[in-house]
């Protein structure tokens, strides 16, 4: 078993799930996501977020709109699409069941 590969797979799955969670609460932009992740002790290399958001948009989970900002350049605010909401629901349930399983096994 390639432990590094497993770790990065787990992290990658988690990352997508967490982004869906954040975007579900309210439309959010990349810097917000980074800050919230930092607050939640989740270590993310800033740069990895952009390709990920880009792919989730292409997969139809997220959509964005540009908003002018009083603090710096205009920002892309990401929100969930209907597909995204659906995906989040499924991920929520799998997360709950995984959490239970791991809790029992530990």
């Amino acid at each position: 078993m390639n432990i590094e590969n497993t770790k990065s797979q787990m992290r990658k799955g988690m990352l997508e799930y967490c982004i869906l969670l954040l975007a579900h609460k309210q439309p959010t932009y990349a810097n917000d996501i980074i800050k919230q992740f930092q607050d939640a002790d989740m270590i993310v290399v800033e740069g990895t977020l952009y390709p990920l958001l880009n792919r989730m948009k292409r997969d139809g989970l997220l959509q964005y709109e540009w908003k002018e900002s009083t603090q710096g350049p205009p920002r892309k605010y990401y929100a969930l699409t209907e597909d995204g909401e659906e995906a989040l629901k499924q991920l929520n349930s799998i997360w709950d069941s995984l959490n239970r399983t791991v809790g029992i096994l530990k």
Binding site: P51, N54, P73
Partner: peptide, 23 residues
């Protein structure tokens, strides 16, 4: 393919960081 936008995202991020610095 499909990732052309990422370069633009990076440029925006650079602008944002420079802006923060200026502030």
């Amino acid at each position: 393919k499909g990732e052309e936008e990422v370069a633009d995202d990076i440029e925006h991020r650079v602008a944002e960081l420079l802006w923060e610095r200026k502030e």
